[in-house]
């Protein structure tokens, strides 16, 4: 990967303008053959923030690892592809590695663990800039300082001489974001980027991601377990459970009027700081995997025998809203209509 003789392709416009899409992604455990992710499909366009939401075992992290070609050894992708514009960039196909490196960048939950403890911030950024843009010397230093400035870190010259252990968690995550932007990517994949941070630092990093999405026209795919974070910055949301998409659509609409019983239950389980209503628990736990049917049926209050036999497919249920459920909740309009009817 550190082959200095290869120059990145000059013309990426064909893929840079396109959307990043996952189609029918299916991932299985290598030894048991158990399906971990099943038929997941969604896309991200430059300039929007899409949130991938789920609890443990939902397949959210495996999905983005597959998009990055970084699936761990114990699992195998058995179907589906990852597409960038018109190109298939799944796994090691064709130009996948080079295209991904230029167009897609990623940050993860624990920035301190992602940075090499023996490298200064300056060395890390210069390495990224040389790898992706063949910058070196004073030009690389100038650009590195500009990147640090762009992620809201003051005194770039001093920071460039710092080692990871000298940084706070929030600073380290900003350095990771600066490094991710060195390649001038069109997409940023962020896996729980604020989970390890304090709440005031989380707010700063979410502001930064929203700002980059607007300022640079980045497409941001944010993996999170926190619906509050989704409400803060996502335009669209994909709700995963047990490796399947339960519901997808406009974030405000899905959070405001969930149609899938799981989305509604997850919202009710979130404690709210302004609400007197205590959170409502979902019985059981997300690790239970039924042998067949909808993955949520053992915990769902609306489940019928149909739910136990075959998983429902994702279908359009409203403007840009999709639900995989045999018993979707009534729409807001319908609920209001019913209330009007009932009240007279």
């Amino acid at each position: 990967m550190r082959d200095g003789s290869r120059v990145p392709p000059a013309d990426l416009s064909a893929v840079e303008d396109g959307r990043l899409a996952v189609r029918d992604l299916t991932i299985a455990a290598r030894d048991s053959g158990g399906i971990l992710v099943s038929g997941v499909a969604f896309s991200v366009v430059p300039g929007e923030t899409v949130a991938l939401v789920g609890e443990s075992g939902s397949g959210k992290s495996l999905t983005i690892l597959a998009m990055l070609g970084l699936l761990p050894g114990g699992v195998v992708q058995t179907a589906g592809d990852v597409r960038l514009g018109g190109s298939d960039i799944t796994g090691f196909a064709g130009d996948s590695i080079r295209l991904r490196g230029r167009v897609i960048a990623a940050i993860f939950q624990d920035p301190q663990a992602s940075l090499d403890p023996r490298w200064t911030v300056g060395r890390y950024l210069r390495d990224q800039l040389f790898r992706h843009r063949r910058l070196r010397g004073a030009a690389a230093d100038r650009e590195a300082a500009a990147l640090l400035d762009g992620v809201g870190l003051p005194q770039p010259e001093r920071l460039m001489k710092s080692y990871p252990h000298e940084l706070s968690g929030g600073m380290a995550q900003r350095v990771m974001i600066a490094g991710a932007l060195a390649a001038r990517p069109r997409f940023l994949l962020a896996d729980e980027p604020t989970t390890a941070l304090d709440v005031t630092t989380q707010a700063q990093i979410l502001d930064l991601l929203a700002d980059l999405q607007k300022r640079e026209g980045l497409g941001v795919l944010l993996v999170t377990h926190d619906l509050g974070v989704v409400a803060e910055i996502a335009h669209r949301v994909v709700v995963l459970y047990g490796g399947r998409i339960m519901e997808t659509g406009d974030a405000a609409r899905v959070l405001g009027h969930p149609r899938h019983p799981y989305t509604a239950a997850l919202l009710a389980a979130m404690p709210d700081i302004t609400d007197d209503m205590p959170p409502v628990a979902i019985p059981g736990h997300p690790g239970e995997r039924p042998a067949s049917g909808c993955p949520f049926h053992p915990r769902c209050g609306l489940a019928t025998s149909a739910c136990e036999t075959a998983p429902p497919s994702l279908r359009e249920i409203g403007p840009e809203q999709g639900v995989a459920c045999y018993h979707p909740l009534p729409s807001a309009a319908m609920t209001q209509g019913l209330i009007r009817y009932a009240v007279g």
Binding site: T200, Q204, G228, D272
Partner: peptide, 21 residues
Amino acid sequence: AAVPRLAPGMRRVRVVLKGEP
């Protein structure tokens, strides 16, 4: 103010804290 809010349209009134913990 930094706590993410669920309620739609309840965007927080920012009291932006400068600096690091």
